[in-house]
């Protein structure tokens, strides 16, 4: 097994740790901050894996999409805006 750069390895370990915390947490709303940590770590991994200018767009699209998903889940759980 050859080891990756320490920055990339840290991103991967943090993503796995946060995913385990998401699965172990019981309360649905308290899962969402851990999911946010997962999306931060994955966005960082995307850029560290492929340092290309277009990767900024890809990482931003993934991050904003994941944020939008969390936002929709949280507002639906809270009762949701009336027009949905």
């Amino acid at each position: 097994m050859n080891w990756p750069d320490i920055a990339l390895a840290l991103c991967g370990i943090i993503a796995l740790y946060a995913a385990v915390r998401v699965v172990l947490e019981k309360d649905t709303m308290r899962k969402l901050p851990f999911l946010n940590v997962v999306s931060f770590a994955i966005s960082g991994s995307i850029i560290l894996l492929i340092p290309h200018p277009l990767a900024i767009v890809a990482a931003a699209a993934y991050f904003v999409g994941s944020t939008l998903e969390s936002n929709a889940i949280a507002s639906k759980y809270a009762g949701g805006p009336k027009n949905e």
Binding site: A7, C11, I14, P33, F34, V37, F40, I47, L48
Partner: peptide
């Protein structure tokens, strides 16, 4: 700048994780 990317991941981990 790669150190800042992983640094920000660690910083958000201390707040949210």
């Amino acid at each position: 700048a790669a150190e800042f990317i992983v640094g920000m991941v660690i910083a958000i981990l201390t707040i949210q994780g």
